[in-house]
């Protein structure tokens, strides 16, 4: 009976950290400044500016997630076959940036990519024309990939490492080529890790406003930027909350879709 008391701090935590904020966002989202009920805040996602920001955010998040996957999956396969020491070291290297401040990392890219930055310095030094990378969607995607890659690498690495080597040997034994082993054995068995990697990259990429602020120069608005501006510069908490609710629907939908892939719930987040 006294065991139950141990759970009480967590109940407080859940209430203060999850339930109450959610209720407040829902309250603000469905009311106007006077406190009267309205669905206008939510419906305003259909407006040209908001819809475009959402569309761009979805597109950039999808592209970054895809790039992260294309980088992380082969890496996991290479690591699976390498020696134990090499494995640990490589994973350490890939996860290392995570230990640095997120803002600092993004700011570093600003310095590298800007007009008079390091890349253009090298290019002009070689007599090549300078590039306009900073303040483009490409710069934002680059920042997202750099910041979120470890979140794709770790879950995929974990599931790929768990695949029993004898399964792969059994497939070769039955005549499978390398490609067939990859398609029929390794890929399907990595699905739980891939699903959780995609979730962990796609969700923060979809909602980010810091990366788009710093590498988009404030000219490119993603849905995250719009929401942020509603809360800060426009002080319209109602509209900000309404748009947040729409975002939550997208996130819950994408996670629900992905969790269906991870039937055993091995790496599931919801």
């Amino acid at each position: 009976m006294s065991r139950r008391y141990f759970a009480s701090p967590f109940i407080v935590w859940i209430a203060a950290g999850t339930v109450i904020p959610l209720i407040m966002i829902a309250y603000y989202g469905f009311t106007d400044r006077s406190g009267a009920f309205t669905i206008e805040n939510v419906v305003s996602i259909m407006g040209a500016e908001h819809a475009q920001a959402l569309w761009l955010a979805l597109l950039l998040a999808l592209i970054s997630t895809a790039i992260c996957f294309v980088l992380a999956f082969p890496l996991a396969l290479i690591l699976k076959d390498s020696r134990l020491g090499t494995k640990g070291f490589m994973i350490f290297i890939f996860v290392l940036p995570m230990w640095m401040n997120f803002l600092l990392r993004t700011m570093a890219w600003q310095v590298i990519l800007e007009r008079g930055g390091i890349i253009n310095g090298i290019l002009t030094g070689l007599g090549l024309p300078a590039l306009d990378i900073i303040n483009t969607p490409a710069a934002i995607v680059l920042g997202m990939v750099y910041d979120f890659l470890p979140f794709m690498v770790l879950p995929i690495y974990n599931t790929v490492m768990k695949i029993d080597n004898s399964l792969i040997e059994a497939a070769y034994d039955l005549g499978a080529t390398k490609g067939k082993v990859l398609r029929s054995i390794i890929l399907p068995l990595s699905v739980p890790g891939i699903a959780s990697g995609i979730t962990m990259v796609f969700v923060p990429a979809l909602t980010t406003f810091v990366i788009s602020n710093m590498l988009g120069g404030g000219k490119i608005n993603l849905i995250g930027n719009i929401i942020e501006q509603e809360f800060t510069t426009s002080s319209n908490w109602n509209l900000g909350s309404g748009l947040s609710l729409v975002m939550m629907i997208f996130i819950v939908l994408s996670m629900a879709l992905l969790s269906r892939l991870d039937k055993n719930g091995e790496a599931s987040l919801i």
Binding site: D164, S166, E169, A170, A171, D173, L174, S184, I185
Partner: peptide, 10 residues
Amino acid sequence: NTVFQKYALF
């Protein structure tokens, strides 16, 4: 063909 120690069924 091989029958593996822990069967290695997919």
